[in-house]
């Protein structure tokens, strides 16, 4: 059974296809879908293609169902590896998660930054 797909358009014009159920992790998008104000293409005007691709990767991994089983342990390990990025990227991921209202990604980003500050790895200059 094919699932419904929607398109996300990044600030630099790139298009990304994503399953609607997966996209619903973004509460902002979920609200738009319910309000029926999507025309199958949703412009995400403040997120670059590079960051949006990572956000979609995160959402795909965290959309756990019968077709995509994943244990908590595996997910935690994957999250840790996923956040092994430079602080510029983490910063923009956090912004994207904030604007798209992805609670789990936001919490992950917060904890990552906090851990970096604790370990003196977050450079302020």
């Amino acid at each position: 059974m094919s699932t419904k797909k929607i398109m996300l358009k990044s600030s630099d014009g790139k298009m990304f296809e994503i399953e609607e159920e997966t996209a619903r992790q973004c509460q902002t998008i979920a609200h738009m879908i319910e309000a029926e104000c999507t025309d199958n293409v949703i412009p995400v005007s403040n997120v670059t293609s590079e960051i949006l691709e990572m956000v979609i990767e995160y959402c795909n991994k965290h959309h756990v169902d019968a077709a995509n089983p994943c244990s908590d342990e595996d997910l935690k390990k994957w999250d840790k590896e996923f956040m092994e990025k430079d602080q510029y990227t983490i910063f923009h991921l956090m912004n994207a998660a904030y604007d798209l209202h992805i609670k789990s990604l936001l919490a992950l980003a917060y904890q990552t930054v906090a851990d970096m500050v604790n370990d003196n790895k977050w450079a302020f200059e």
Partner: peptide, 15 residues
């Protein structure tokens, strides 16, 4: 940061 979605309609779901 400005609103990232360029659409008209209700946007008070997350203030």
């Amino acid at each position: 940061m400005s609103q990232i979605f360029s659409f008209a309609g209700e946007n008070d779901f997350y203030r």
